[in-house]
Write a protein that binds this DNA or RNA. Structure first.
Lengths: 225, 225
DNA sequence: ACGAAAATGGATAGGCAGCATCCGCTTAGG
DNA sequence: CCTAAGCGGATGCTGCCTATCCATTTTCGT
């Protein structure tokens, strides 16, 4: 039942769309902690309008991210369909990380402790079993080391997200390098190293990445006279 | 010249110590974003006293962390002294991560964009060349894959820090598991897998880790009526 | 084409958190 | 014992975010 009780007036519906689009863009590039006011502004509508459409930011997030999480589910399912168990596993990691890379908000939803929101938590929980299968299938095929575990997938993603997040804007794809490293530490075929997909960062680049403040976080301390 | 112009009165000196101790404890367990008020409280002294002793939080951090960073430098130097190049590299990672694990504040200083503070940035910069040597030595000995780079050390630490940070309190040592995984993806001796030092987390534990809010961060959204 | 209902925008109130100060009282120590 | 040094913590910023309110504008059924 996709129809709401009172069908929205034309302009209102348009603005609702505008808001969702704006939110999507902002979340993608700045992460989840933007204010509803920010979103309204970016959408070119007044704050009041935003609050009229959505009770609060949670609602916007909810409206936006259920589908995205579904997309992750889809990726996991496709990965399970892959004829080669190892390639399936790899493709899941690559693709889901790629999605997270494109969207800081999604990244935060997946890796962060945010949102107790019912529907989203729901979908999140639906991903887990798929990951279990993915790993078990790969283990059954003797493609990954026997002591590898389902939960490892999560933490690998978590670690790589952190890397991704601090190098975004300097060397976007650097995280792939470390994914490759890890995969080389996991697969049973140890005949040779996989080629690293990305150049390492220069000292200067590294310094910039580690030192340049992230655009969302609080900077623990500031105010120097 | 460790002597200040006006030697402190007895009780004042004591309180200064108390404050530093308290700060150290709080930073270790909660990270850098605690307020000077928090510190004062935890030290059992008034806020005024804290501000009388230190102009602001930066000053406290400065006073505390220069020595700790020096300790990291020491670890790197010892690692360079290790007869075996590979073991040296491993020991550096293990020990420096272990230090970061014991101290969230240190972790943040090393991995975060915090603090433009002069003295600390200084020491930080002194660590870099040591890491370069460490990696180059290991590569020269053909102990690590040839495409490995100095900068990789940093990002490995960064990723593992993230893992460490979300599992602290549930499975403190879990990050070692992933360090091992990565090391297996890096070293040239690929005859067998290193045994993983830690059990993987159960589904329930994983969920708790990912879901349990971190004690410092802002929780993006809240306030539900 | 007209008027009621729906929608708009943005100034602004209210809340919260961290930082820092001020000042009446206490304490060390010559 | 007297004075300068130190103490505590209530208090007042300031900045950020949330959310509301209402005078004005727009939509759309008749």
């Amino acid at each position: 039942m996709p129809e709401t009780p009172h069908p929205l007036r034309k302009d209102a519906a348009l603005n609702r769309e505008r808001l969702l689009t704006a939110a999507s863009e902002l979340f993608a590039e700045r992460g989840l902690n933007v204010t509803l006011n920010d979103i309204a502004h970016h959408a070119g509508v007044g704050v009041g309008t935003a609050y009229r459409r959505f009770p609060n930011k949670e609602a916007v997030i909810d409206a936006l991210f259920e589908e995205r999480l579904q997309a992750v589910v889809a990726v996991a399912e496709e990965a399970l369909d892959h004829p080669d168990a190892w390639q399936g596993l790899v493709s899941f990691l690559e693709r889901s990380l790629d999605m997270q890379f494109g969207d800081r908000g999604l990244n935060q939803i997946i890796n962060g402790p945010h949102l107790g929101d019912a529907r989203i938590a729901d979908v999140r929980d639906r991903i887990a079993p798929l990951m279990v299968k993915l790993v078990e299938r790969a283990k059954a095929a003797h493609a990954v080391r026997p002591d590898f575990d389902q939960s490892d997938l999560i933490f690998i993603q978590l670690g790589l997200s952190a890397i991704m997040d601090t190098t975004r804007g300097i060397a976007p794809n650097l995280y792939r390098r470390y994914l490759t490293l890890i995969l080389d530490g996991i697969r049973t075929d140890r005949s040779e190293f996989a080629p690293l997909p990305t150049e390492a960062l220069s000292a200067a680049q590294t310094h910039r990445a580690m030192t340049g403040r992230r655009r969302d976080g609080k900077s623990a301390t500031h105010t120097a006279p």
